[in-house]
Design a protein around this nucleic acid. Structure first.
Lengths: 113, 113
DNA sequence: TTTATACTGAACCACATGGTTCAGTATCGC
DNA sequence: GCGATACTGAACCATGTGGTTCAGTATAAA
């Protein structure tokens, strides 16, 4: 039986439940970025934006490196795997897509080599 | 580009962010059950339990069929796939575990045949 | 018909979220 | 050193969550 870290799943799934935070993750997937540069794209105050960043940090999804007055944000995607694993338990329930999934991972593996 | 239904991901990931609701999902994965029977296992009032059920319903993860005074709950796992698909976008970021994942699905497929 | 069962709803509480503004601090560039 | 830049924190607000209790309704069973 796979072990799931409940507290991690709690925080991570809560963290990804807001479109702004998913957008931040999406942005950081392309590489680290300055907090202000990321914030710019969002129609809210910097303070509001920072709250989202803090939620992501607490979930372990974002790491912050401070250099002088600048904060660089980097994606730390590992915790996403906990939620994914939990969800994949139920994969067989929503469809008989095992074939396609297997194919998908085989292809990904090929591409990454 | 895959289309993600933002509102669905919002509600579903929020719904699975509480251990009680994940436990309900786990329970219902074995088959439909009466509301009270499921509720029994949880150390909270029936009213409190019902609130969790309502959150799951709003996320489209649980369906309720009323027969007389009894509510039968059934898992409706399809919406889980939206969150899973969103997460799998980032799968390649968190590790080079593609081999193991592929193996996992191959084995699952074997077992289910 | 009475009583027990299976919820349902309203009201309340404490706390978190998602946003704001405004004021403060720390650092960088000139 | 001065001003601009890049945050940070406190305070506030409305709303949602996660729980409670208590009272009510509807149905099934005796």
């Amino acid at each position: 039986m796979v072990q799931y870290r409940a507290a991690t799943i709690d925080r991570v799934s809560a963290a990804i439940s807001h479109p702004t935070r998913r957008a931040i993750i999406h942005r950081l997937a392309h590489g680290p970025a300055r907090l202000s540069d990321v914030a710019e794209r969002f129609p809210m105050s910097l303070t509001g934006f920072c709250k989202h960043v803090r939620v992501l940090e607490r979930a372990g999804l974002v790491r912050r490196t401070r250099r002088g007055r600048e904060n660089t944000l980097a994606l730390s995607p590992q915790p996403l795997s906990d939620v994914t694993r939990w969800l994949l338990q139920y994969e067989r329930f929503w469809t008989a897509r095992l074939d396609r999934m297997q194919e998908y991972f085989a292809k990904q593996k090929e591409n990454s080599q």
